[in-house]
Nucleic acid binder design. Structure first.
Lengths: 205, 205, 205, 205
DNA sequence: CATGAATGAGCATTCATTCAT
DNA sequence: TATGAATGAATGCTCATTCAT
């Protein structure tokens, strides 16, 4: 291993060290209380060092968001590989996102941070990275639907569009969890979610 | 007009003056840059005066959110009253939310602020007010569907559930507007939205 | 009853109404959280009205302090009147102050506020009123001692001085309650207090 | 001297610079008027810088309190080391506290701040540090008494208890300085103090 | 590479008091 | 008498970022 490689490796190690610290904070006190100096303290590094490895706070958030998406993706990939029916796959994927929003709330929050906040400007590069990480999930859904169509299980002209609609619905509905107890007086939010998923799947049968 | 009425009127005027200032800020620099002292400056009032009329910052946000919802509601109410088909009504409502998210982006942001942020605590009263303001919109949709079912145009056992799914889908998809240019490479976001709306309506035909 | 008397009576009623409010706050949230506007709200009066009846916040505090001292005084007066020995009287008085500091903590705090805070300036009149209210308590102690001397139970040339020393010791020791758990590692504060009282009494035997 | 040492030294200098500023304020306008921003201004530093060196305002107060206690302690230690009688030592210690409360009034105030205010919460660690600083003074008194007992000069079963009573009396009586001119009509406060000290010492003879 | 000191604008909120009505 | 609107300084504290070493 040459000097270059070792340097690169060390750099990666430091980056991970910083990310570890940020993740610890994310999970211990939530997204709102992450600050660079807290990360530095947690990572046992100087503040300046953080800035050497990440241009700014946003970059760290992006890295965490990628982690979150990766976790979600791997779950969904498992489902994709299962030997179960197409419809069942979609149902399980939907369920897994619901669970993710609850069990990995902090990761969900940070994904949501990029998706829902009215923040205007990201460097194009960054934005690309953020967005593309989620794309793979949509592609899985698309593939399931497309394959279902091939197999004659589903009937849908544009699996790509559908996959986005599918995910958008799930995402929107999860936000409505907040309305439990007020708008959703008698409705169980989970029931509502399941109902919607079935409805969605029904549209391509 | 007695002294009492005049006082009450003046008080209302001041409240509006403050809200005007907050709205101006909301529309000029976005929700993230609204602070009490900026509102005070904009309104040409002392900071303390703001607190005399609104208990805290959140209350001002709520007032703005209510404004936004009211605008959206009135648009949707118009559509509801139109003498057009049930399906057409739903289509137009969906369209109007899309437009709202673009043309009244700042109002959309503040509504979204209450719906999407991982924020911790609201006084129950406040939360109720926030949530319930949106409820009327859902009820219109429910009524359209329910009436459609009565008329034999639609087929849906639970119009209440459907209305929430409908809105959730719209809401979630609007968030995906951000993905234009990255994930949505070739897709037009608007086309996708329309596609989804038609799909949704199709499920209750 | 003439107009003058009625007016005076009404004025007194209002003053009490204000004091009631202040006392309620004192006992519900403690001395630190008493503010004029809170008093006004509690009393269902305007802020300006408070200032009509009390020149400033301090005046209200003084009134509360007087109440506290009055309560303490009446307890001590009871003990004074009891048909028990001189020594027993002193013991019970000391005990009653200890209890007062615990059971009427809020009154104790406000008395302490005037006695311990480094605040410099009070109007002479005010200061006189504050200080003199406590004087009666000291006089009781002095009388007990003086009478004890007469009866041959005690031996003390200057009962006046002793009464102040007696009270000063109690007061100082109560402050040390805070040291429980740190400086007073193994000592029970109450035991220490009792020990000191006995010691004190012993000096005049 | 290495870089590390120099850095540490500079850091200490800055901490002192801040403390100097705080002390200046303490001595010019009293404890009540110390605020972080005033300290920053006085120290010609940014507010943030203050917080870099002291976690919060309380920490600065503690530092000042420790200074005060240290001054008092060193005086008392001197007396302890003097080759004078046991009784004389106690007398002089009492006198030195009296003088301290007059000549170092601001330090006395800040010590008193921690001892007398009904303040709610301190980090346990902090509280420990505050309380323990005073402990050393009590231990000196205890040792004098204990030694006096050994030498047959004093007669006291529990020198530890006595030392606290001794100090509590002094402390409480100093508070009564405020009553000069009102309650203490004809009494000289100083005379009263001396009287009490002699009385106290007498109890262990 | 790594550090960590320094910044100062920024934050939400409180408060005693005044004064025109 | 009584009101309550208005004030604005003041509070403790946070934070992303910079930069000299």
């Amino acid at each position: 291993m040459g000097v270059k490689e070792r340097k690169a490796l060390e750099k990666q190690i430091r980056r991970n060290q910083i990310l570890d610290a940020a993740r610890t904070l994310l999970f211990s006190t939530g997204i709102d209380s992450i600050s660079i100096s807290k990360i530095a303290e947690q990572a046992e590094l100087g503040v300046g060092t953080i800035y050497f490895y990440y241009k700014n706070k946003e970059q760290i958030f992006v890295a965490l968001q990628q982690e979150g998406v990766a976790i979600l993706y791997s779950t969904i990939l498992q489902i994709f590989k299962n030997k179960i029916g197409h419809q069942e796959k979609l149902t399980q994927i939907a369920l897994s996102y619901y669970r993710f929003s609850e069990e990995q709330k902090n990761y969900f929050d940070i994904i949501n941070y990029f998706l829902s906040s009215p923040i205007v400007f990201f460097e194009p590069n960054l934005k690309n990275r953020i967005d593309m990480s989620g794309r793979k999930i949509l592609l899985i859904i698309r593939d399931i639907v497309a394959d279902g169509v091939l197999q004659g299980v589903f009937n849908e002209k544009d699996p790509g569009k559908f996959s986005i609609m599918f995910w958008g619905t799930l995402h929107g509905l999860i936000h409505f969890k907040k309305l439990e107890g007020t708008v959703l007086e008698n409705e169980s939010h989970k029931e509502l979610y399941d109902y919607s998923v079935q409805k969605l799947i029904h549209t391509i049968k």
